[in-house]
């Protein structure tokens, strides 16, 4: 009882600021304090949202965004985990990669986008490359830190049972570091979401980011809100899906605060 009413309160309080924002927005639009060309009414945006979400053309744009997002994120996950594990496993790789990461991690990857355009063209490849460049670092760092922090006795137990070095790395060290690895992946996922949208805004002929820029050029204010809300909800949805996967994968681990 207590817990349930507690959750209800939390949800209510959480809905408050969002309701407040929509309310103020509505009043501003309804009273004409903000002209529709600058701030369309929330109802107009909602109507357009529903209309767009059922339009095949819009969904096609969303699909190309998702395709780039998942391609980039997938590559970043594989590369980030592989390199992160290698950093811990091999003194040599660690000594080489650690300073490289130290130099590259704080570099704003978006600045590399022109270089990717010049070398990979204006199509999907350059955008995917940018997503990889941005998402790979949190995954790599979390994997390296997580695997380095694994209790050595877990690995010893495996080696004593006859596991080879590689076998031990894959069947014990990596699973033991999974909580940390997944935290890195979740940060990488949100980053992928953000970066793919930005890349599409900077140069693209399709995708949600392109829709925003197209709307901005023709001053279609309503249409500017729609892709932004879409990407926000997409991010929430991906995050929720990721959390479900995470809960399942981490079934045996003690609860964490995240």
């Amino acid at each position: 009882m207590r817990a349930r009413s507690g959750i209800a309160t939390v949800v209510l309080i959480g809905a408050l600021p969002i309701a407040l924002i929509v309310g103020v927005w509505h009043v501003l639009a309804a009273t004409g304090m903000a002209p529709p060309s600058l701030l369309p009414a929330p109802s107009a945006v909602a109507a357009r949202l529903v209309q767009q979400w059922s339009s095949p053309a819009y969904l096609e744009h969303a699909a190309s965004t998702l395709l780039r997002l998942f391609a980039g994120f997938g590559i970043a996950v594989i590369a980030g985990i592989a390199i992160g594990v290698a950093v811990t496993a091999s003194r040599w790789v660690g000594a080489t990669v650690t300073p490289l990461v130290r130099v590259l991690a704080p570099v704003p990857k978006i600045a590399l986008y022109p270089a990717f355009i010049l070398t990979l063209g204006f199509g999907d490849a350059s955008k995917i490359a940018l997503v990889v460049a941005d998402a790979v670092f949190p995954i790599l760092l979390a994997t390296a830190q997580g695997t380095a922090a694994v209790e050595p006795k877990l690995a010893w137990s495996a080696q004593a049972a006859g596991a080879s070095r590689w076998r031990c790395l894959l069947t014990v060290v990596l699973p033991a570091a999974l909580p940390s690895v997944l935290t890195g992946c979740r940060i990488g996922l949100v980053i992928s979401c953000i970066v793919v949208f930005l890349a599409e805004m900077i140069t693209s002929t399709d995708g949600l980011g392109h829709l925003l820029v197209r709307a901005a050029r023709s001053f279609q204010t309503v249409d500017m809100f729609v892709p932004l809300i879409t990407i926000s909800l997409l991010g929430l949805l991906l995050n929720a899906g990721f959390n479900a996967v995470r809960r399942r994968l981490l079934a045996g681990f003690p609860e964490t605060t995240e």
């Binding site: 939390v10 959480g14 600021p17 949100v190 953000i194 932004l228 990407i231 995050n239």
Partner: peptide, 30 residues
């Protein structure tokens, strides 16, 4: 404060995946 946290958390979750630079066109309008 749990209440303050409950107040801000969902809003922050919604803003998190939105690229802030993507708000540029709208903010420039204003």
């Amino acid at each position: 404060s749990r209440h303050v946290a409950a107040f801000f958390n969902p809003l922050l979750m919604m803003i998190y995946p939105v690229p802030k630079a993507a708000l540029m066109p709208i903010i420039m309008l204003w």
